[in-house]
Design a protein around this nucleic acid. Sequence first.
DNA 1: CGTGTCATGTAATCAGTTACATGATTCA
DNA 2: TGAATCATGTAACTGATTACATGACACG
Lengths: 192, 192
Amino acid sequence: MRARNRSRYAILGFLSWGPMSGYDIRKMIEASVGNFWRESYGQIYPILRQLESEGLARCRVEPRDGRPDRKVYSISDAGRRELDAWLASPVDDQPSRNELLLKLFFARRAGTEEAVGLVETFRELQSRLFERYEAIESELRGGHSGDADLPYWLITVRYGRHVSRALLDWCDETLGTLGELRRKEGAASEKG
Amino acid sequence: MRARNRSRYAILGFLSWGPMSGYDIRKMIEASVGNFWRESYGQIYPILRQLESEGLARCRVEPRDGRPDRKVYSISDAGRRELDAWLASPVDDQPSRNELLLKLFFARRAGTEEAVGLVETFRELQSRLFERYEAIESELRGGHSGDADLPYWLITVRYGRHVSRALLDWCDETLGTLGELRRKEGAASEKG
DNA sequence: CGTGTCATGTAATCAGTTACATGATTCA
DNA sequence: TGAATCATGTAACTGATTACATGACACG
């Protein structure tokens, strides 16, 4: 069972919530899982057609005078089975690429100043992210209590929160290390 | 300045350490940055040729009787400039996809048991990773003291360590949440 | 004698983004 | 009047993996 297209499962997942159009799916993804998933129309529209041709989804066309038709897709039983099979299959854990780390790995070439710049920018990003996760969490707890999906949504938000918190700590530690390194460099060049 | 091919910079980075072949580069990447970067030959060999044609690297052919030639590439001054420009450019921070979180987001469909399974598997992975980071760190501190690159290498390892530690905490928290959820489900089904 | 390592590479395929095209409607 | 939103889609491109092909040598 090789790692197949993951976009299709994301799409099936949202269709499992109810019938919607490609446009709707895009909006939903941005609003709900945008922090760890995104899809472009270039993926969504072809995949919806494909799902239909495979019998995993059905399409109902809503004509709208003048404007292009609205195509509302709904998931089929076969689609639900496919989705559930994916949910039950193991996650393949190939570590993804990290451009920041690659730069830092070679950062001696660029010097401490540059490295500090990279980390500071990254720290600001994580800081914003952390606040966002906090905000989402309290918003969810406030506005969606009772929703049976809520615990699972919170789990994904908590993930982001834990990671951002850890990365902020790493940034501070790293800025300390780099500061020390710079001090030493300064001392060395004074002597030399 | 659109986001160009990152593989080329990884390759230039290793060439900046000294002349080496495509095969060498692959091994080096695995051994040094394998936890957050990887390259396939399908990328490496064509890119090396391309770098040469752009004047960013030079190639020296070592004929070996019988076996295929060994092609040793070295970085040029232009290549160094290209590498340094990349090092100084900002990291683009599009959050990458996270399949585990996507599954957990929809996990109510699959049920608590399945969710627990996913998280437990992930926890084992992180546990192994964390130990690996610890081992690498002490190995580096022991065997490479004095190497001017060491502080930067340690920074990348510490990143992994911080993240793995945070993810272990998240796993434990999540397994707690899911356990509670299962208890409630059990209680509800007893009543019903 | 088989497995693993050294060492090159290509072709097919997949996954995904970006840019483009169209055009009505709504809102400030 | 102009920007944003609704809503469809395609084509070109990029980035990357996978599978394949070749063949010698070393090690146990």
